[in-house]
Amino acid sequence: MDKLTKRDGKVTRNNAGLINMYRTMLTIRRFDERASQEVRNGAVPGLVHPYIGQEAIATGVCSNLIEGDRIVSNHRGHGHLIAKGADTRRMMAEVFGKKTGYCKGKGGSMHIADFGIGILGANGIVGAGLPIATGAALAARLDGKGKIAVVFFGDGACQEGEFQESMNLASIWKLPLLFACENNMYGVNTSYTYAIAGGDLVKRASAYDMPTASVDGNDVIAVREAARIAIEHVRAGGGPYFVEFKTFRWSGHFVPEAIPDTRPKEEIEAWKKKCPIVRFMRRLLEDGIVTRPELQKIEDQVMGIIDEAVVYARESPLPAPEDALDDVYSA
C-alpha cells in the first residue's frame, strides 16, 4: 500500500475527482446489490448480470472520457452506464420493465442505452458490441473533433470472430477506439486459462499491431492511469489501444442463479478480499483524502440515490400491452 500511495502521489491532488470515483464505484455496487435483491424478491421480471467486483474498471476508464466520447457496453453493463453518467432511476425502471425506463420497458437490464450521453447501448450477444464500437470510432474520426469510442467486453468475447475482425479493422484504419477488456477470469463457468490458447490476451492483441497494457482491474488508480495513457494515444490519432483489466465477478453469471456457480469457492473468497471498493476506501483514508464521517456521508447519499431509484421504478406504470407495437421502425 505504501508503494502505491507514493506512486500515485500526483493524482491525489485532485481530491474531488477521487471522491467522485469512489462515489461512482459505490453507486454501481449498491445498484447491482439492490437490483439482484429485487430480482430475488420477484419485483424484476427478467434477470441481471451484476457488475459487483468489477466497479473499478468502468469507473477508472470513464473518468478519462469527455463529452462527445461514446461507449459500447455489454450484458454486464450497469457499471459502464453509471460510470458514463446514466440516470439510475431510469435504469432501475427499465430493469423493472416499466414505461419510464430508458427503453420504455422494451429492453430490460441487458439493453439499456442513453444516446444523449454517448452510451450506444448494452448488448446481450457476447462480442457483438465490438463491430458497433468500431463504427462509433469511425464516426468520431469522420467528425474530426478529437472524440473517441470505448468498447467494454470480457475475456469471453475474445474468442468470438467479431473480436478478431474488429481489432483488425480498427487497426488497419487507425480508428480512435479503446478496447477495454475486462478479464474476469471466467466465461460463465469456463476458465480463461482453458478457453484462451496461450492464455495471454495481451500477446494476442499485440498481433493486431496496436499498443497494449495489462493492469490490476481492482485498483481504480491503476485503471485510471492505464486508461489515461491509452486514451491520450487514441485521442491523438495514434489508432486503437488494447488494455486488459484483470478482475473477478463475485456473483454467478446472472441473478437469479439459474446456472450453478461451479467456480472454486476459495478463488471467489480470495477475490472478495481484493474488493476494489474497500481497497480504494483504505487508500483514500490513508492518504488523508477523506475522513470516516465523510465516507459515511457518501454511503448515505448513495443509499438515498438507490432507494430513490427503486421507489421510482416501483411506482412507475407498466407499459400498456399494445405499446409492444411501437418503435419497431423509426419515422
Binding site: F115, P131, I132, T134, G135, L138, A139, A149, S166
Partner: peptide
C-alpha cells in the same frame, strides 16, 4: 477486409453516431 460482421456492425455504429 473480408470481415462481414465487422463492417455490417461498423455500419450500425456509424448509424447510431449520426452517419
Amino acid at each position: 477486409p473480408i470481415s462481414e460482421s465487422a463492417f455490417v456492425g461498423t455500419a450500425i455504429g456509424l448509424a447510431g453516431s449520426g452517419y
